[in-house]
Simulated assay, not measured.
Amino acid sequence: MRDLVENEEFTLLPDLAVRPLGGAVIWADDEFFAEKENLINPGPADYRPSTFGHKGQIYDGWETRRHRGRPGDDSAIVRLGVPGVIRGIVVDTAWFTGNYPPAVSVSALEIDDYLPADSIAAHDDWVVLIDRSPVVGDSRNLFTVESEKRWTHVKLTMHPDGGVARLRVHGEGRPDRRLLGIGPLDLAALENGALVLDCSNRFYSSPNQLLYPGLARRMGDGWETARRRDDGNDWVHIRLAGPGMIRLAELDTSYFLGNSPGAARLTGRTSDGTELELLPRTALLPDTRHRFPIAPMAASVEEVRLDIYPDGGLARLRLYGELGA
């Protein structure tokens, strides 16, 4: 397999379409050989040779029938788990060699109403993000997106037919602003607009998973660093959903037993760069949801740094509070 674009920086951003974030493939005009839902499964596509069902070789992806003169192209629509700004898209044709599409295009739509899938498919406001472009089989085909608009749905179109293993839609969450401030707010939730800006190490898994909704279901659902062999410590830097006052911090080490951090510290940063200690260095237990009240703050913070000592893994980070003025 090979990459068509050398710059993969946007792939460090969260995949807004992935199933664990609540993404769903809501519509496709054909899925004769392989189900559309496979497009957004977490993890790379799998392949087992000589595994045949009633419709042929079983593929871990989305595959349509051969057109045989049937007009038009094949499309699938994904409702993003986290609506947001899209920075790049990966059309992964892993394991599709003689049956991948010659070309693809991607369009997007912003619509917060809960409409039936057929109505969304027939919507006339779709905006092209990626023009019809050639793709290569058994490859991660990368495309950058130049748009600052917020999107809720994407449509992948194959020209004319074939199979795609995975669709990754990397970007930054942008919530429905009408819903913010109604009840307790997790200022560190990806779906509310928080974003990992940087981290010291992402050897085993992405730090973006710290900000995922729901509880982790296994160790691989969190953030885990490599073992350190020096005197330093690992850290992650997060931009909050907006400047806010944090009242409660939850540091969840669920499923991390022999590899949980020994301790952690939280530091906030205000808009003028002032640093505020939110949680002093505090011992952590393995496989535990720790909840720490945060003392009243002197000012709203817009960024947070989580230091773990010396290394290890966390399942989730929650920072509950309210948006500042």
Rank of each mutant, 00 (worst) to 15 (best):
H54E: 15
G84A: 05
I77C: 07
A315L: 09
E6W: 12
W62E: 08
D113R: 10
V301W: 01
F203W: 15
L285H: 14
D92E: 08
G183I: 00
G137T: 03
A165W: 05
H237M: 14
E6Y: 10
A264M: 08
P101W: 03
P243R: 09
I26Q: 05
T64K: 06
G232S: 15
S205N: 12
L306Y: 02
A315C: 09
L109C: 07
G324Q: 09
N99T: 09
A103T: 08
V85I: 15
A249G: 09
H123E: 11
A315W: 03
L248V: 06
V91Q: 12
F52T: 11
R316V: 03
N41F: 14
L109K: 10
L179N: 01
D231Y: 13
G23L: 01
A241D: 01
G61Q: 03
P310M: 07
D125S: 15
R132Q: 15
E250P: 11
G137A: 05
G232T: 14
T144A: 14
R305G: 09
V154L: 04
G69H: 06
L180C: 00
L115T: 00
E6A: 15
G43M: 03
E303P: 02
A94T: 14
R68Y: 13
I89R: 09
G61Y: 01
V106F: 10
D287N: 12
K36F: 10
K55D: 13
G232P: 11
V78A: 08
M158Y: 04
T225H: 07
P14K: 02
L278Y: 03
R265K: 12
L276W: 02
A117H: 01
G313A: 05
L276D: 04
G88F: 09
E277I: 06
V104D: 13
D198S: 15
Y255N: 09
N192Q: 01
Y100R: 11
A194C: 04
G232W: 12
M158E: 05
S271R: 12
R178M: 11
T11N: 04
F256I: 05
E35L: 14
V301T: 04
E250I: 14
P134R: 15
P184A: 00
G56T: 03
N141L: 09
R174G: 00
D112P: 06
A122M: 11
R168E: 12
K149M: 10
G171V: 04
S147R: 07
H290L: 02
Y212I: 07
I26A: 08
A122C: 10
E322N: 03
S200L: 06
V169G: 04
D307L: 07
L156N: 05
H123C: 13
S107D: 14
D161W: 06
N208I: 00
Y59V: 03
N259L: 07
L142F: 12
F256R: 07
